[in-house]
């Protein structure tokens, strides 16, 4: 009984932290979407959403209301159980990463995170590798051609790019000498890993865009060939869940880039008077902008080129980068 009594406050703390974080992430998702639509609109010289609320600021609420009120259709050919389950798998994996992502650190060095695990970055990789199930099961369970093709494409693409992504992580891990996320950030107090691991960073950015199925790697939902890809048959709230998962994954990718390569909450140029959390948010926002910039600029890859690029270009470069980093640390490191 003692254990339960001692554990109770911890559980309450974790529960409250999780609830707050969930709220923050969902709100960020809503405004990330608006941000994206506005930026894309400006890039294309049009005003973007500006009808709901001042400057279109209430647009996310209107979108949410629409998705919730829309009819939720299940096709006759669909497998009902898995069709319903798939969006939740996507959403669950997208959110569970935030259980360990630290957003800042107190003065005593303890990180602001729900849980701080040793295996940090490996945990992120594990959860991310489960995220594919939502897409592939959803595509399969829809029981029609286009979703199945979309999900098969996505599975192949994500498996291929995951390898190079993991290899780009390993370079950072070798330099930091730890897998825990706050340990990696602390190792970047002198300089960001962006500098010694520039090749790794480029590989990470490319693979991250591919992992989140965004332009120019959005073959999963290539409108011109596959209608809507894996979520063609989904509508209403279930489609909304996939949509949230996609944006939350983008946010995760931006957070990981910040933690691993951009120094986390460490202030650049000795600007320590600004709190770390502000730096963290600013870096994540810059990365998100970069994402949208890509979408506004680049056309889509052709599928065979995408595969060839992943296996014949990215993977060898990532491997060479890893070997070079390992040799450097072994001979001159620390």
């Amino acid at each position: 009984m003692d254990a339960v009594m001692n554990a109770a406050p911890l559980w309450v703390v974790i529960l409250v932290k999780s609830a707050v974080l969930l709220l923050v992430v969902v709100t960020t998702f809503a405004y990330a979407m608006l941000f994206e639509r506005k930026i894309l609109a400006w890039m294309q010289l049009r005003p973007g959403p500006n009808r709901v609320g001042p400057w279109g600021l209430l647009q996310p609420a209107a979108d949410a209301a629409k998705l919730i009120l829309k009819e939720d259709l299940t096709p006759k050919t669909a497998d009902p159980l898995i069709y319903r389950l798939a969006p939740f798998i996507s959403l669950l994996t997208a959110f569970s990463v935030y259980a360990i992502i630290p957003f800042g650190a107190s003065a005593d060095g303890s990180a602001w995170a729900i849980g701080n695990v040793n295996a940090g970055i490996l945990f992120v990789m594990a959860i991310a590798s489960l995220g594919i199930y939502g897409i592939s099961l959803g595509g399969w369970a829809s029981g029609s051609k286009f979703p199945l093709l979309g999900s098969v494409r996505s599975t192949a693409q994500m498996i291929s790019y995951e390898l190079s992504m993991s290899l780009s992580f390993v370079g950072v891990l070798i330099l930091a000498g730890t897998t825990s996320l706050d340990g990696i950030v602390n190792a970047q107090q002198r300089w960001w890993f962006l500098l010694p691991q520039f090749v790794g960073f480029v590989i990470y950015v490319i693979t991250a865009v591919a992992e989140t199925n965004r332009t120019p790697f959005d073959l999963v939902e290539a409108e011109t060939e596959l209608v809507g890809g894996f979520h063609t048959e989904y509508s209403g709230l279930r489609f909304g869940l996939f949509f949230i998962a996609e944006y939350v994954n983008m946010l995760t990718v931006a957070c990981i880039a910040t933690l691993l390569f951009l120094g986390g909450w460490n202030a650049p140029f000795g600007l320590g008077m600004v709190p770390g959390i502000v730096w963290f948010i600013a870096k994540v926002a810059c990365f998100m902008f970069f994402y949208i910039w890509l979408r506004g600029t680049l056309p889509r890859f052709r599928y065979d080129r995408l595969m060839a690029f992943g296996w014949k270009v990215l993977l060898p470069i990532a491997t060479l980068n890893l070997i070079a980093t390992a040799v450097w640390v072994a001979y001159w490191g620390k």
Partner: peptide, 28 residues
């Protein structure tokens, strides 16, 4: 901890995904 994470990355993330891939393609 490490074994748990590897269990998910290797078995759930890679091997089982391959099963699903084959099943979804071969027999629909």
């Amino acid at each position: 901890e490490f074994l748990a994470v590897m269990q998910i990355i290797v078995y759930s993330g890679a091997i089982l995904m391959l099963f699903l891939f084959v099943i979804a393609l071969l027999s629909s």
